[in-house]
């Protein structure tokens, strides 16, 4: 498979970028995720072999930190901020609305692979609460009413 071959080269490149430094494991995984939008199983095994770090260690890191996903994400990642300011301004109602409109639960991806819905703990845009970040764009002062319109733009 062509894509698989391309993937392997990338993982190697990423490891090379950090000079194989084992303490850079988190950064390496971040780069891999940036490349594939998630952490493919094959990539983790390949890192383990090339860097001579037990897969158990890598799997522990990959499942410990929030930013990593072992599941393939959709084209657009929706992150509903659940920081305190957003919470008191009704973030939970936004999440409910997203779940209803996309017909998925938080942590899932839509069937058409267009959207993945996740919760994020504070984007630090508290003055604009409640906020939702979709594919890197922050939507400030969002009301549940505006959700369908915004989703349509992606």
């Amino acid at each position: 498979m062509k894509t698989a071959k391309a993937k392997k080269i990338t993982v190697k490149d990423i490891i090379k970028k950090y000079g194989g430094d084992k303490t850079a494991m988190i950064a390496i995984l971040q780069d891999v995720q940036e490349e594939f939008r998630y952490l493919p199983k094959a990539a983790l095994s390949s890192i383990s072999k090339q860097m001579e770090v037990p897969l158990t260690r890598i799997y522990e890191i990959a499942t410990f930190y929030n930013a990593f996903s072992l599941k393939q994400r959709g084209k657009n990642l929706i992150e509903v901020c659940a920081g305190t300011a957003c919470h008191v301004q009704g973030a939970a109602r936004l999440m409910d609305r997203m779940e209803r409109d996309l017909a998925i639960k938080c942590g899932e991806t839509t069937k058409d692979k267009m959207f993945s819905l996740e919760e994020v703990r504070c984007l630090g845009c508290c003055s604009l609460a409640p906020v939702v970040r979709i594919s890197g764009n922050i939507h400030p002062n969002l009301t549940q009413d505006e959700v369908p319109k915004i989703l349509k733009n992606y």
Partner: peptide
Amino acid sequence: IGKGAGAFVCGESTALMTSLEGKAG
């Protein structure tokens, strides 16, 4: 620069250092 990867506990000094070492914080 060491980049975190989304773990509140890494604000705790010993966890932060463990994370800087490239491990689960």
